[in-house]
Design a protein around this nucleic acid. Structure first.
Length: 571
RNA sequence: GCCCCCGUAGCUCAAUUGGACAGAGCGUCGGCCUUCUAAGCCGAAUGUUGCAGGUUCGAGCCCUGCCGGGGGCACCA
């Protein structure tokens, strides 16, 4: 009974030991620096930030630090000697194998094989926790994405933002954050007015009236479809009804459709924040009043202007038009004021390339309202282009020329969409190759990754079909996992925690996609070379490898889940 | 004209935020199916990181100036 808390603590330490070697090693290096100074091996100097990283070149080891190079000047010693002094004073660490010093002054660390061989067991102890980090523990985060007007189908650009946002949402939860995935729903303003007018025109046209859409109206076929629905339901009873009614109907229908479509790719929002609510609660005008009180608003040409130049903008911006109607900026500022008041420690706003210029203005508004904008991270991403047969498909929502997300899901499936949308850094455009996305071969990274999971599952399926005991690997001797392929895979698997830490601190979900691919690329040759069920595999090794593949399957399931993708048993 | 993103192998992109010899995939070339396993594996070739300076122990990454591509600069959102 008395050792229960101790065991908990041991479990916690073990978990950290699995995930966060670079932090632990950095602490150990700091300790070694202090010990070396105390022992006179190093002169006194202020301790620098010690960073331990994974060298790109695997032959250099699993971890490395260049701290000795940084210390050359303050210590006035040769970097190599500093490195050696640190290495000599390093405390013993159970997971560490070889430590060596390399010119011009790197210290390289290698994990011990024995420790790595124990990794499958630690993964299987709690597979859903593998890769978990804790830097967000106790903090509230919000990810805002998509936030499209309910005036048409979800575009591919919004889809990209949505997948980036949802992947980040999953990763942040893995880091301990309490995360709200939010959609800012523009159900007020001019675009909605235009939507209503567009539907009404189509409705009147269906009744044979000689009216035409204006240039700024929505041209897509879905507008006519909505008009047809209204005609079927209400006949000609709406001819003299104002377009507001059409707008409300269209808005709700389109919004429901958007929601359903996004759910098909695994994006389900915790909260739809209605722009109209900012008017209903008076927050829009309250925001204006606060900006005014703080001296950041003035009148010119009948309009109200925000002094954004005080925050570095190249010109001031209109927040209330001469007609008395707010521009989009004012509710946007009110919305972010609300985010600040909701007490989020972290807000990630995800915008497409068409909003690159406006994002900073909102943050200026936040600061003008007296809040720090440090808690907001704006994540801008580039466009998506569809490619088929080697050529790009050019689309335009307003002209009604586009591939809908629904069609894309029908054609390539949700998994491919999820993967390809995060398969590039947000700063790079995505070329979505429709031919590749449905190809069932190793050329298609989606299949390549999922096939790793399938292959693991296949081993256990065969094993069960042969009528062999399902728990045969439970007490396997894992020290038999000595094949270089096996150890290389385990090293990579171990990186998941580091990857997730990077994803959530730099807001770069593409790293997860690259990691998944790299892991699969290490898996397949292992699968090829390290056989299990063969008659010439000795029984103890067979059991150890069963354990290995069971852990490998768990890691792939975990990574696929983090990316919102399915982990199929068969293909 | 101003702002943002990009410029890395033939093509599409990475590169642990300033670290070691710049890496993957596709494409090209060459191998591998009597074994859970070809929807797969192994191997080879490919670079003045757009150009010119600068910062320092060290630059694809930071600074300055050019060149080129994309996007944005509304009292639209």
């Amino acid at each position: 009974m008395r050792d229960f808390p101790l065991r908990l603590r041991a479990a916690k330490l073990l978990e950290l030991a699995i995930m966060l070697h670079h932090h632990e090693l950095a602490a150990a290096v700091r300790a070694a620096l202090l010990a070396a100074q105390a022992g006179g091996a190093l002169p006194p100097f202020d301790l620098p930030d010690v960073t331990v990283e994974r060298p790109r070149e695997t032959s250099h080891g699993d971890y490395a630090t260049a701290v000795a190079l940084q210390l050359a000047r303050p210590a006035r010693m040769a970097p190599l000697k500093i490195a050696q002094a640190i290495a000599d004073h390093l405390p013993p660490l159970d997971y560490l194998g070889e430590v060596n010093v390399a010119p011009p002054g790197f210290i390289n660390f290698r994990l011990s094989d024995a420790w790595l061989q124990g990794l499958p067991e630690r993964i299987l102890a709690d597979p859903a926790a593998f890769g978990r980090v804790d830097h967000g523990a106790g903090q509230k985060a919000q990810v805002e994405c998509v936030s499209a007007n309910p005036t048409g189908p979800i575009t591919l650009g919004r889809t990209r933002g949505g997948v980036i946002g949802d992947t980040l949402h999953r990763a942040l939860e893995n880091a301990g954050y309490d995360v709200t995935l939010e959609y800012y729903y523009n159900d007020a303003g001019r675009q909605i007015t235009l939507l209503g007018e567009s539907v009404k025109v189509r409705y009147l046209q269906l009744l044979g009236q000689p009216v035409e859409l204006a240039e700024e109206h929505y041209q897509g076929d879905y507008i006519t479809d909505l008009a047809r629905e209204l005609l079927a339901e209400r006949g000609d009873a709406l001819v003299d009804v104002p377009s507001d009614t059409f707008a409300a109907y269209a808005r709700d229908r389109i919004s429901a459709q958007q929601k359903a479509t996004l759910a098909r790719v695994g994006i389900v929002f915790d909260n739809y924040f209605r722009e109209a609510s900012l008017y209903e609660t008076g927050q829009v005008w309250q925001t204006l009043a606060e900006l005014n009180e703080r001296g950041y608003v003035y009148e010119k040409d009948g309009a109200q202007w925000f002094r954004s130049t005080e925050f570095g903008d190249d010109k001031d911006r209109v927040v209330v038009k001469a007609g008395g109607e707010p521009t989009y900026r004012l509710p946007d500022m009110a919305y972010h004021r609300d985010k600040a008041q909701r007490g989020f420690d972290l807000v990630v706003d995800i915008f497409g390339p068409d909003h690159h210029a406006t994002a900073p203005q909102v943050l200026m508004g936040v600061r003008a309202l007296g809040y720090s904008s440090d808690f907001v991270h704006t994540l801008l991403h580039q466009i998506v282009t569809l490619v088929r047969g080697g050529g790009a498909l050019k689309m335009s929502t307003r002209r009604g020329v586009y591939v809908t997300l629904d069609e894309l899901v029908d054609e390539v499936g949700a998994d491919a969409i999820r993967y390809f949308m995060i398969s590039r850094s947000a700063n790079s455009p995505v070329e979505f190759d429709l031919d590749l996305a449905v190809e069932r071969s190793d050329k298609n990274p989606v299949y390549y990754i999922q096939n790793a999971h399938v292959r693991c599952a296949g081993i256990f399926r065969k094993w069960a079909e042969a009528g062999l005991p399902a728990d045969a690997d439970n007490d396997a001797d894992l020290s038999l996992l000595t094949h270089p392929r096996e150890l290389a895979f385990l090293r990579k698997a171990l990186e998941l925690g580091d990857v997730l830490e990077t994803v959530t601190t730099l807001y770069e979900p593409h790293r997860l996609a690259f990691y998944a691919y790299d892991l699969a690329a290490l898996f397949h040759p292992t699968y090829e070379e390290c056989r299990v069920l063969h008659s010439d595999v000795p029984e103890p090794l067979r059991r150890a490898r069963l354990r290995f593949y069971r852990a490998a399957q768990a890691v792939f399931a975990r990574v696929l889940d983090l990316m919102g993708m399915s982990a199929p048993e068969v293909m």
